[in-house]
């Protein structure tokens, strides 16, 4: 069994790279396996994500992409190997899980906004009750991020009154309000109408440009080309190939990668 090389980002951004090499990695996954009952969903996952690195995970459905990033904030638990986030190893210890979740934001395919709370309340809930931020400060932060995602005027509406694209932008802002060091995106544009995909991607691109550490599971290959430091291709629960976007798209090595790319890039 070959050990994959664990190198961090080698992208053009020198400053990022300095920072990435000077501090400990944001996420370190070592020899991780996961089973659903007897089904072996994730097999021998080794992945190191440097601070400020942007990773895009692609692959056919059922390949374990979503399961992998859901393991990173312990929405799913793994049975073998290690996952270390910000220097904290994820175990069954609730305290550690809380510690990791405070630092890791997650954006879901179906937004999962809280329908009974206003947009502003959605954004301030966790800062107030988890971080203990005073309400006024939490609201100021919330408004700041709503402006960043360009919908401050919706603050007092309810999620049901917003379009899908707006809801997903609110969901991103909700995660940002916790000032996370890492953001996980689980197919954030898959449930959106085509004309709304761009507004969400724009927000994600600007986040990437600011240096946020990101792991995105997505089928948006244009996004991958533009912002990813590395593209990872998964199939059958394992990492088949990873490379810089340029190399990955122009010169795929593995048969499965080639097949996959030929199917999605017409």
């Amino acid at each position: 069994m070959s050990e994959p090389s664990q190198t961090t980002a080698a992208s053009g951004q020198a400053t990022r790279q300095d920072k990435a090499t000077s501090t400990k990695p944001a996420i370190e996954i070592i020899g991780m396996h996961k089973w659903y009952g007897d089904f072996h969903v994730l097999r021998d996952i080794n992945l190191t994500v440097g601070d400020g690195e942007r990773i895009v995970i692609a692959g056919p459905s059922g390949s374990g992409k979503s399961t992998l990033i859901r393991c990173v904030n312990r929405l799913e638990e793994h049975q073998e190997g290690q996952i270390i986030v910000n220097g904290v190893e994820l175990t069954a210890d609730l305290k550690r899980i809380d510690e990791v979740r405070r630092e890791v934001g997650m954006v879901f395919q179906h937004f999962n906004l809280f329908p009974h709370l206003t947009i502003l309340q959605n954004l301030t809930l966790a800062p107030i009750w988890v971080r203990g931020t005073p309400k006024a400060a939490a609201e100021a932060t919330a408004m700041h991020y709503l402006e960043r995602v360009k919908i401050p005027e919706q603050a007092n509406k309810f999620p049901g009154q917003l379009s899908g694209g707006q809801q997903q932008r609110v969901a991103i802002a909700r995660s940002l309000c916790m000032q996370p060091r890492i953001m996980l995106f689980d197919e954030p544009t898959s449930a959106l109408d085509p004309e709304m995909v761009k507004e969400v991607l724009d927000v994600m691109i600007s986040l990437a440009e600011e240096g946020m550490t990101m792991i995105c599971v997505t089928h948006e290959m244009g996004f991958a080309r533009q912002v990813a430091d590395r593209v990872i291709f998964m199939d059958q629960g394992q990492i088949i190939e990873q490379n810089e976007p340029e190399q990955f798209f122009s010169n795929p090595q593995h048969e499965r990668t080639k097949l996959f790319l030929s199917q999605i890039l017409h």
Partner: peptide
């Protein structure tokens, strides 16, 4: 191929879960 690249040469076969999942 650059130093970031990695290609899995051999697929990992499914193996049984470490702890029994039924019984």
């Amino acid at each position: 191929m650059t130093d970031t690249g990695y290609v899995r040469s051999e697929l990992v076969a499914a193996k049984p879960a470490p702890n029994p999942t039924s019984g």
